[in-house]
Design a protein around this nucleic acid. Sequence first.
DNA 1: CGGCGAATTGACGGACGTCAACTGCTGTGG
DNA 2: CCACAGCAGTTGACGTCCGTCAATTCGCCG
Lengths: 260, 260
Amino acid sequence: MGMPMRSADVERVRALPLFKGAQPRTFDGLIAGAFLQKFPAGTTLLMEGDPVDFLYVLIEGLAELQGTWNDKETTLAVLRPVSTFILAAVVLDADALMTARTIERSDILMISGEAVRRAMKEDAGFAVAVAEELSGCYRGLVRTVKNQKLRGASERLANYLLAEQVSQGGGPTLTLPHEKRVLASLLGMTPENLSRAFANLADYGVSVNGPDVSIHRPVVLDRLAKPDRLIDSHLQPSAARVGMAARECGASDRTVGALN
Amino acid sequence: MGMPMRSADVERVRALPLFKGAQPRTFDGLIAGAFLQKFPAGTTLLMEGDPVDFLYVLIEGLAELQGTWNDKETTLAVLRPVSTFILAAVVLDADALMTARTIERSDILMISGEAVRRAMKEDAGFAVAVAEELSGCYRGLVRTVKNQKLRGASERLANYLLAEQVSQGGGPTLTLPHEKRVLASLLGMTPENLSRAFANLADYGVSVNGPDVSIHRPVVLDRLAKPDRLIDSHLQPSAARVGMAARECGASDRTVGALN
DNA sequence: CGGCGAATTGACGGACGTCAACTGCTGTGG
DNA sequence: CCACAGCAGTTGACGTCCGTCAATTCGCCG
């Protein structure tokens, strides 16, 4: 089942921080039992509470992780290629805490969870890479909690926009990668309130046209947003620590792979 | 510097999920370079943004992890013995995202971060244990975010009380382990609002007397709180998954060690 | 052409933060 | 031993932020 992977895709997976530290035979073993599958938009890959049998790798498309309680829903993260997800549940062989859904048509690689756990025990390099990946994801979540608890709604939006701006090349105008309702849920508000938050930001030089957002006065917006390197992962200092102990093998803090 | 560890304390550390999977010589190596230190209440162990040189293990006492932004503060977690913290920053050799403070007089074991990273590379069992620990912490944070985004203030308080109740033996009355202002910050509200939230819960059979809280009608409170195994880690099902693949070596999902 | 869902806008109410005053406890110093 | 300062906690008044409900517009697709 599934389809054979194009070798270009194999390269992209191999280049992920998660797999860079793995020995060739470990990697081959993981890939051998894996399969690549295409899903249409809006497909539920995994339901909250279900046992997790696979580690997922989003190769192409857009996906979302969401949590539910008492008939309310919230988006925990929006995933872009190439990123892995549900790693933590795989490591512990535990039930999923979040539902995974495709937002767009997506290509997703599914790797046996059992195989991942086995590979960790046999290949210390891979186990270290898993720990590093999890650490990055963990720190991403710490940032999320701080963002949520310490900032107001328009401040969260302002910071999101500034982050998207740099991730889209730094130009004055950016395009929202998905529906506004998803963004609202990600930022912890209702769609109605997101509209109003955008309206507030008009005074700070932000104009909206459908999915296109322009930032006309970055300085002013920045003064409202007060971005902070301990919350907003997109601004990582060029400053290295004094000892300058050589950063061995990467696995940057703001690893693409989000919440696992 | 520091003091020699009592052998009973060494035993307690060795028994942690984090170290149970480590080989004896790995563990001894980590402990050898470590030191135990006593800190008075209110001591800042580590400031947000500082480089992290040690993995911390809280042996005795009570500590707190907090985040700051724009002159606001929030408590991310309250730690009880025995738990490790700041693991993720140690693994990545990155700056701390949270400030660590003692709440009470505490005994804290400090293990060289450099040594931890070295040990992971040399001992796959230990690296796996680190990954498992991080996975548990990660999932704890996912629960935190869901709790924060999906529930209202009194619902969060109600669930906190129910969780404390079981952790304190299930009796009808429990004692808050720290000041209410810390609890308020942990639950994401102001002290004033926590008072009002307690007042709300009076209608649901909760009475407060200083630090002592009594739950007179658990069923009623439970109907308000709607605790959920995918948010509240204290209720883990006896139900095992069908395949019943033997749960190899523990590292439970609700590992004592909180946010690392 | 008609229907559906996303997005926006307005009106309203409730939840939560802020400010201030007051209570009670504790530790300190006269 | 008592007086007092300081802080935690509570309570009330008030304002703001945010969620809810409803109506409307727009674009997309049947």
